[in-house]
């Protein structure tokens, strides 16, 4: 285990204004994930898991506190700055796959590489699709692929840009248990091979057990696990 903290949250809170007044979604949370580690965040619906993930990944800003991602203090950056940090460091896997329907599997995987101006985007995308076992499906569109295949494309897209941290939001939530198991296997295999730091949200006990660390949230506060 490396001694460098890849993701660090210091007293992060999140409040939103509603018609009924201010609603606290996250109570002060502090945590650290070292480079190459894996962390599962669990909790019931509405416990604040997705909000925390969004803040840790720099998609959202905390109301108070700070997040440091690979040495970059996200709280001191504007949206353009956070986008730059995400471009160089972060990958995502979503529950609903989030593939662009108009693009083929190959083009979907190429997209983040193209956004970074990677000249070898096409070759890298092909290589990662081969690694997730979709060499024969390069030119298929999302609607022509099964749920499991779509998630494999999403995994290929996430790893192709060789991120330092991979955030996964319920990666098996939309899949049956057999397919889900295969996807988990693939996810951890690639994670091991690339030494990526992995932060995932899951309901699945089996999936959380595979992570080195676990953290359970309830009503916006950590009730067990790593702090």
């Amino acid at each position: 285990m490396s001694a460098v903290a890849m993701v660090q949250a210091n007293s992060v809170t999140k409040q939103v204004n509603t018609q009924e007044g201010t609603l606290t979604i996250l109570h002060p949370i502090s945590m650290r994930v070292m480079a190459g580690e894996s962390l599962a965040i669990t909790g019931a619906s509405g416990s604040g898991k997705s909000t925390l993930l969004g803040i840790l990944a720099g998609l959202d800003v905390p109301s108070t506190g700070e997040v440091i991602l690979n040495g970059n203090n996200l709280s001191q950056l504007d949206e353009e700055g956070r986008a730059k940090v995400r471009a160089g460091n972060v990958g995502f896997i979503f529950q609903s796959f989030q593939l662009l329907p108009g693009l083929s599997a190959h083009e979907n995987v190429m997209l983040p590489l193209e956004l970074r101006g990677d000249k070898a985007a096409s070759n890298k995308a092909r290589e990662f699709l081969e690694r997730v076992g979709l060499a024969q499906r390069l030119h298929h569109y999302p609607q022509q692929l099964s749920g499991g295949e779509q998630q494999r494309v999403a995994i290929a897209r996430a790893f192709a840009s060789e991120p330092k941290v991979l955030f996964a939001d319920e990666p098996t939530g939309n899949l049956d248990s057999t397919t889900g198991a295969r996807i988990i296997e693939l996810l951890f295999e690639l994670n091991r091979a690339q030494g990526t730091t992995l932060i995932l949200i899951t309901h699945e006990e089996r999936l959380s057990q595979l992570c080195q660390h676990r953290m359970e949230l309830a009503a916006g506060a950590i009730v067990s696990g790593r702090e």
Binding site: E80, A87, V90
Partner: peptide, 16 residues
């Protein structure tokens, strides 16, 4: 809208 949100999550800025 979703495509832009995705591209932004992948690191694209507003200017880009």
């Amino acid at each position: 809208t979703d495509q832009v949100a995705l591209m932004k999550s992948l690191g694209a800025g507003a200017v880009q």
